[in-house]
Write a protein that binds this DNA or RNA. Structure first.
Length: 300
DNA sequence: CCCTGTCAAGTCACG
DNA sequence: CGTGACTTGACAGGG
């Protein structure tokens, strides 16, 4: 099992998600920012390797305004050598990569302009992964989207829109149960229609589900990942005590995590785990220690 | 240098 | 009807 965390590292003095304001956009600024972000990504991955963290979510801010019309720069060609170098490091060490476009990416929006912008955003995410040269086990995770007053129709619209996408995008996409609108069961129904793997979010399931146990959920989700998709990716977090419902924990709840790990072990489920915990790599390092106590391998 | 209003993008829930 | 939340503060202008 690989353990990972999303997007940024707070330990090393290097942040790979620098951006700037649209009104201060210049090509020079873009080039400088992307160069810095790529250099940081490299450092973060090296840090992760030293701490046996072989799963990482790359920030959507890697290339600011990547899908915005203001950006006419051929960043793909310009930064190809840097992407290639990072990609080689990823391949060499068996690192798994994911990405998670932000809330503005909506396949099933009623507004077709929103859908079209979302496709451009997905193309950007897929380009990053393609430039790294990572295989189809590197995924872009999406939520189903809005409900717009008619859930069934909105799910159908998601399916129909997804069917129109280029295979280069489709092969990367996975759907994740969210914490308010679309449950695991909804995602599984969409999987049955179009075969897209389901990325199971444990915490979202605990606050928004149709009542399945986590154990049963894992059993249902595992077969949605085909050979070429790699082992299932899971998102893990827990409730921050004393805060509003659905707020992610500041730091890992070790008792809760151990219980989850035991469930996974009993099922003999091979999977990769993304820890969506506020203190990021600090909790991820603790999680690695827990896994080792439970006899898991964290290297590939 | 510090302070703080605002930031590309959408949707829903809460008050 | 305005605001906060989402996975995450930090950019940038003005004092």
């Amino acid at each position: 099992m690989r353990i990972g965390y999303p997007c940024i590292n707070r330990t090393i003095d290097c942040k790979g998600d620098h951006t700037f304001r649209l009104h201060s956009y210049t090509e020079e600024r873009l080039i400088a920012t992307v160069a810095e972000n790529l250099a940081c990504l490299q450092q973060i991955l090296a840090f992760n390797l030293r701490h046996e963290l072989l799963f990482f979510r790359i920030t959507s801010d890697l290339v600011p305004f990547a899908s915005h019309p203001v950006n006419q720069f051929e960043w793909q060609a310009h930064f190809q050598p840097q992407f290639l170098e990072i990609g080689q490091f990823i391949a060499e060490h068996g690192i798994r990569i994911s990405m998670h476009p932000d809330q503005f990416t909506l396949i099933n929006s009623l507004d077709t302009a929103v859908f079209e912008r979302s496709v451009k955003e997905l193309e950007y995410h897929a380009e990053v992964l393609d430039l790294l040269g990572v295989d189809t086990s590197a995924k872009i995770q999406l939520h189903v989207g809005g409900i717009y007053g008619e859930k069934g129709k909105s799910m159908q619209r998601f399916v129909k829109r997804l069917e129109t996408l280029d295979e280069r995008l489709r092969r990367r996409l996975v759907i994740e149960n969210d914490d308010r609108l679309y449950t695991l069961r909804d995602c599984l129904r969409i999987h049955e229609e179009i075969g897209i793997p389901v990325l199971f979010d444990v915490f979202h399931h605990e606050v928004n589900s149709s009542g399945e146990t986590v154990r049963d959920a894992l059993i249902m989700v595992a077969p949605t990942w085909a050979q070429e998709d790699g082992v299932p990716m899971l998102d893990y977090s827990s409730q921050e005590p004393g805060e509003r419902a659905r707020k992610h924990a500041e730091t890992i709840d070790l008792a809760h995590f151990q219980q989850f790990v035991e469930t996974v072990r009993d099922l003999h489920l091979d999977c990769d785990l993304m820890l969506e915990i506020k203190d990021k790599e600090k909790s991820a390092v603790k999680a690695v220690a827990v896994l080792k106590e439970h006899g898991f391998e964290t290297f590939y």
